[in-house]
Amino acid sequence: MAEWLRPRHMNEALRLLAELPADHHQIISGGTDVMVAQQLRAPRDIAVWLDLSAIPELKMVEVTAEGIRIGAGVTLSVLRRHPEVQKHWPMLAASAAVTGAAPIQNRATLGGNLCNASPAADNAPVLLAYGARLEIAGPNGTRFLPYDQFHLGYRQTALAAHELLQAIHVPYLPGGSRAYYRKVGTRAAQAIAKVGIAAWIHFDAGQGIIAARFGLASVAATPCLLPRVSHYLEGNNLKHVCEFTIREKVSSDIKPVDDIRSTAEYRLEVASRLVWEAIHDAH
């Protein structure tokens, strides 16, 4: 019978993790990805489960001078209802509210959503756009990693074998920031994104663009930024932004594919249109 480890502290969890056999263990948080994989994809033989759901440190949300620190084990329903999140990071409240539906949000954690590393993860674009940083705990202490360096390839992350995601840090945004979030799924609720987009644009006093970041879901092997679009916009003025160029940049930044949910062509076109809309309608 498989062993079930349920540490109460992060230190304990890290110690246990360091001792686990490399291949036959499974880390589980809310379980909404793990349990599905366990049932539907070829179930693996799991000798040891490391359950993170009883670690209070992972469930904390703290507002700091720089922003907010969200424990990796915070559920999406906590996030969606959190007044500070709603006020300062409305895109995150919005993405949490459209990740699955209530029964999923009550279990699914933000950390799990990122570590599962699906290209369609709904909260990933938002964290990319907000410029989040990850706090990663390992046997040798804690390190910080800009979130945009976390996804290395299809379902591949920068987490080392004995590391755990501890928290997600989202900074306050400067005055003049505007945001835009939209998820396109086959139906209104409980749908995997065909395209997801979050944008953060920092305007000067006029229509000059100081900085711009776009996070996208379901248009590449990982959640991704649009570096060429950002580069084109930064230092530019809204008045001079050209739709054709945006399209060109978007299509060189993303690599959408045909799959069971949508087509590459649709994803590219809609991503381009939504980026254009984001630039003009972000508020």
């Binding site: 599905v36 049932q39 329903s77 209530a102 029964p103």
Partner: peptide, 12 residues
Amino acid sequence: QVVNSCLIPLGQ
């Protein structure tokens, strides 16, 4: 809280 029991391992 409402949750789907098919996704919950007894261990939790």
